[in-house]
Computed example of a mutant assay.
Amino acid sequence: MKTKLFAILFLLVSKLCIAQLSPNDKKIYLDSTWTETSQENSKYYRIVKDYYLDQKEYKVLVYYKNNQLKEESILNGKDGGSPNGEKLNYYENGNKQSVSTYVNGRPTGKSISWYENGNKREEGEYTGNYEIPGKHYRLIQYWDENNNHLIENGNGFYSCGDKASFLETGSYKDGYKDGVFEGKDFKLNAFYKEKYENGKFISGTRVFSDGTKTDYFEMEKRPFPKKGMQDFYTFIGKNFNYTNESFKNKVQGKIILNFVIDKEGQIVEPKILKGLGYGLDEEAVRVLLKYGDWIPGEQRGMKVRCSFSLPLALQAVR
């Protein structure tokens, strides 16, 4: 009995130690959209190790509100940035969700994921081939939620999804989609059928419950300014006005903005993920909303809302 009690106490102490802060660490509370918020309104919190030290990389830990570890990674910036090295994700019950390795912000090499009950979901590898959509990731092993081994050494019949969101079926050959894949999007009440050749997407058709039919030849299109990204960045730089307060206090640092490009190609829902104050945050939102139309993003031939993050490096010096 004493041994059992000691083990329980040890686990509790270990759990508390995970979230302890050193004087150089920073704790940030986040809501469900990963926007900085108060502790009362938070769903997660992030700890950036050695935040107040000048380093090339920072260890970042994200916790659920119940103090259970959700994510751990190494980023090249204290206020965000690209991951480098191993990245791990966990379910709220403590079970491991996924593990992968990043190099210069891109996943590279082997990747493993699990179901929430602890059963393995899939094993794959990131090939680094981003020139051909569908070839950057190779699926090697896959098990369904009942632990049936459906894809073995890259070959087999794939069935994935749930009744709440989607269901997709089709065959894999040598780790890539090959042939006809069929699926249903339960949220949109739509069916789709797509053709692949050795991982390369060829074409697709989506049919809604009312009979509306859409053919598409690209799986996904990212939103894009009508005049190009360089025009967007130039506009922000030319039209941003520093405040007198920022000059007086010689403010420098980075503002991180999050915004949405809606289905009409308009910038909506701007949020400050990291601000500098002195009126600069409000100015960042003002100049962002002043920019013109974008070409909206698409998924499976349908216009969709897409989220962006925009870092602004500022230095208020006359």
Rank of each mutant, 00 (worst) to 15 (best):
L5H: 10
I8V: 15
L9N: 09
K15H: 14
K15D: 04
C17V: 14
L21C: 03
K27L: 14
T33I: 06
W34E: 13
S38C: 05
K43W: 12
Y44E: 05
Y45C: 02
R46H: 08
V48A: 06
K49V: 11
Y52T: 08
L53T: 10
K56I: 04
E57Y: 15
E57R: 08
L61K: 10
Y63Q: 01
K65N: 07
K65W: 14
N67V: 00
Q68P: 03
K70W: 11
K70G: 01
S73E: 14
G77P: 11
G77Q: 12
D79S: 05
G81C: 06
S82T: 11
G85S: 12
E86Q: 11
K87V: 15
L88I: 10
L88Q: 10
N89P: 07
N89F: 07
N95V: 01
K96W: 12
K96Y: 10
Q97L: 11
V103I: 12
V103T: 07
V103E: 13
S111P: 02
I112W: 14
S113C: 03
E125L: 09
T127I: 03
E131S: 04
I132L: 01
P133C: 00
H136G: 01
H136R: 07
I140P: 11
Y142E: 12
W143A: 01
N148D: 13
H149W: 14
L150R: 10
G154E: 12
F157Y: 15
F157L: 07
Y158Q: 07
S159T: 11
G161Q: 05
D162W: 09
A164M: 09
S165D: 12
F166E: 13
E168R: 06
S171I: 10
K173W: 04
D178W: 07
G179M: 07
G183Q: 03
D185F: 03
N189P: 06
F191I: 04
S203N: 11
S209L: 08
D210G: 04
F217H: 05
E218T: 07
E218F: 06
K226E: 15
G228D: 07
Q230Y: 09
F232A: 02
T234Y: 12
G237L: 08
G237P: 00
F240Q: 02
Y242R: 04
E245D: 14
E245I: 03
S246T: 11
S246G: 06
V251P: 07
V251L: 12
Q252F: 12
I255N: 02
N258T: 15
D262A: 02
D262I: 02
Q266K: 14
I267C: 06
V268T: 10
E269M: 09
K271E: 15
I272Q: 00
L276I: 12
G277S: 06
D281A: 02
E282W: 11
E282Y: 12
V287K: 02
Y291E: 07
D293R: 13
P296H: 01
K303T: 05
R305M: 09
C306V: 12
F308C: 05
P311K: 08
L312C: 04
L314H: 08
Q315E: 15
Q315F: 13
A316F: 04
V317I: 13
